[in-house]
Design a binder for these strands. Sequence first.
DNA 1: GCCGTTTTCGGCCCGACTGTTTTCAGTCG
Length: 575
Amino acid sequence: MPKTNEDVAELLDEMAELLAISGYDPFRVRAYEKAARAVAAYAKDIDGMDDAGILAIPTIGKGMAVRIREYLDTGAMHELEELRAQIPAGMRELIHIPGLGPKKARIIAEELNISTVEELIAAIGEHKLKDIKGLGLKTEENILRGIEQLRQHGDRIRVDIALALAEELMEGLKSCSAVIDIATAGSLRRMQETIGDIDILASSKDANGVMEAFLELEMVGRTIARGDTKCSVLTLRGMQVDLRVVPPEAWGAALIYFTGSKAHNVKIRGLALKKKLTLNEYGLFKLDTKTRVAARTEEVVYKRLGMPWIPPPLREDGGEVEAAAGGTLPALIAEDHLKGDLHTHTNLTDGQAPIEEMVDAAAKRGLEYYAVTDHAEGLPMMRVTREKLLAQRKIIDALQKKYPSMTLLHGMELNIDKAGNVDYDVDTLARFDWLNASVHGLFNLTREEQTKRIIAAMENPHVHAIGHPTGRQIGRRQPIDFDPEAVFAAAVRTGTALEINCFPDRQDLKSDHVRRAREHGVTFTISTDAHSVNHFRNVRYGIAIAQRGWLEPSMVLNCKPLSELKEFVARKRAR
DNA sequence: GCCGTTTTCGGCCCGACTGTTTTCAGTCG
């Protein structure tokens, strides 16, 4: 079985976690974390690389290369196996409890012979922790709360839900006159697909006043921590929100600090030191005189570090700092680059709105083209027929006259069966302008079967794009297991686009797949899969995935004019 | 474990907050 960069990165991350629990030097732990990110972000496939190739990956030294080599050759990393054997599985759950890190977890485990969350709860019930040096009654209470929080919100919250909540909180704070600037930060500003806790940054000359106003907001529940510049609360629904307040002159530096990621901050702070500067949330300072040289905006801080402003979705220490310093940051795609939507539904199948409403709303988006792609009859629940789908053409032709500035495309979302076949014969398919094919069932086939079926669908000259390629639904359904490198290579070979589905519970492809596929030269589509007019606003989530995957508009089919879209379709059909 | 105009050892980003501490370690981001 091929070994992907992601596979290797996952193992290195696991090594880091297990080493941390085992009490190893934190810098060694960080070395593994850094290596994992570097491998995941590396442009070339690690499988089949020679030793020199592996050593060419940034932050990979001799020791790391040997371990990666071992895994590529044998499928295992013996040190990892040993650590796994030494550390009970339950122990690893302990350090995921908020407030409990590797140090305390290890002390507790050793002193009380505890290795599961259940045993920990029991020990706290008997107040056994407070007898350990450095721990006390408060620690016991906090750990219990942490466990409760983990169980309630163990799954991270979807970005759209977090964003709505953050916007509501910020709206509530706007009436506070002490607030000068306010913005989301953290993983939410970086637009990760799921969010652990919400970070909000404000600038003010009266930090206390801002925090008072914040704590009085209706949706704020219990206060976890409260200091002079920072407080953490749980909302009534159990979501953690951190508010940090800084003086307005430090806004830019604070925004960088609070946006993260942690790894990105570590990287640019290291860079600052090399320039005899030090960076914290209050600004960029000269190391010797402590004079502040930049702080007011993010732009001036990055500029003083010798690089242009880095868009937040890139700030993951995935090579963006090096790219910025070298002047090779991607010219990132943005929402207004999109000229069309290539995956949408109507109430002919499972959409909620009639075609007229969908098309009208699409025209108001200012799109150049718009594809109506209802489900084909391979999905039995849809009660649709070939005749009904073909008849939709007449409605589209009539609507086209009403909306002359937007070209309507008649399409379908086909269903990929077990063998990779789709709903209709070639002659029927040829009567449509644009065809997505998607997996809607058989989610548990083997990796080989899934890979084969997707590639077979891409071989079809009338399949122009694969819709929501992994079929995952965040928090509800795992992605299907296919070999991403094989699928990406086949997409390029067959001239088939891969969709970035904007639905917040799909976000499929995900950004690290996008980044890898980009290196293969894959063409992408970014489509809403809208089932109602409201779903058009989900475009922001698809764009976020594309940005996190370093995409430029030239890599996305529906950023191109209609003529180029038609050429793409024609090329595929000529195969 | 990585790395090097501080180069083969000794560093490795920085500060807020908490709880247990009389000066600091752990956790978090």
